[in-house]
Simulated assay, not measured.
Amino acid sequence: MTATTTTPAHPDDTQALHPTQALDDTVHQRVRLGVLSIAREADQVEFGFLKHQLAVTDGNLSRHLKVLESSGLIAMRKGYEGRRPRTWISITPKGKRALDAEIQALRELVHRLDTRGTPL
């Protein structure tokens, strides 16, 4: 099967951009999307829980959390539970808006494919 597409002659053309143009590279990455999604379900989530749920290492999760925090999408709070140090993560209002926009872009992409009879 060959796909036929029409490329706009100029970026300012009035044709709607492909839904993937609305995807945010910061949010769309698998681990970061997972962090935001899980954090959206609770007031705050503990680092160890995220690590387990996303099946990543401490270092890998820490790197992704730094990206999200520096983008203003999450807030991190360090403290203790008993004698054990803990890190709690919560999604910010900006993070909620970014996650909502990402989900909307994905919905538009699925809708576009579904209405064209493309098997999903």
Rank of each mutant, 00 (worst) to 15 (best):
M1A: 10
M1F: 03
A3H: 15
T4R: 15
T5Y: 14
T5E: 09
T5Q: 11
T6E: 12
T7L: 11
P8Y: 11
A9T: 08
H10W: 05
H10F: 13
P11R: 03
D12K: 13
A16W: 07
L17Q: 13
H18M: 12
H18G: 14
H18Y: 11
P19G: 09
T20I: 11
T20K: 11
Q21P: 02
L23I: 13
L23F: 13
L23G: 08
D24C: 02
D25T: 10
D25P: 10
V27F: 00
H28N: 12
H28L: 04
H28C: 06
Q29A: 15
R30F: 04
R30Q: 05
R30A: 10
V31S: 07
V31I: 15
V31T: 15
L33T: 03
G34D: 08
S37F: 03
I38A: 05
A39L: 05
R40K: 09
R40N: 15
R40A: 14
A42E: 14
D43K: 07
V45I: 11
V45A: 07
V45F: 08
E46S: 04
F47S: 06
F47I: 12
G48A: 15
G48L: 13
F49W: 07
F49C: 01
F49H: 10
H52A: 11
Q53E: 14
L54K: 05
L54V: 00
A55S: 10
V56Q: 12
G59I: 03
G59T: 12
L61P: 07
L61A: 02
S62N: 10
R63K: 09
R63D: 11
H64W: 06
H64C: 02
H64F: 01
L65V: 08
V67L: 09
V67N: 06
L68G: 01
L68P: 00
E69F: 04
S70R: 15
S71T: 09
L73V: 06
I74T: 08
I74V: 14
I74C: 05
M76G: 05
M76P: 01
R77M: 06
R77W: 06
K78I: 00
Y80H: 15
Y80M: 07
E81H: 07
E81T: 10
G82C: 02
G82W: 02
R83P: 01
R83K: 14
R83E: 12
R84M: 03
P85F: 10
T87V: 12
I89F: 04
S90E: 14
I91C: 01
I91S: 03
I91G: 01
K94W: 00
K94E: 15
K94C: 00
G95F: 00
G95R: 03
K96H: 15
A98N: 03
A98M: 00
L99D: 02
D100K: 13
A101D: 11
E102D: 08
E102I: 01
A105I: 10
A105V: 05
L106A: 02
R107D: 12
R107C: 04
R107Q: 08
V110A: 10
V110Y: 12
H111I: 07
L113I: 01
D114P: 04
D114K: 13
T115H: 14
T115Y: 07
T115P: 03
R116S: 11
R116E: 13
R116F: 09
G117K: 04
T118A: 02
T118H: 11
T118Y: 11
P119W: 07
P119L: 00
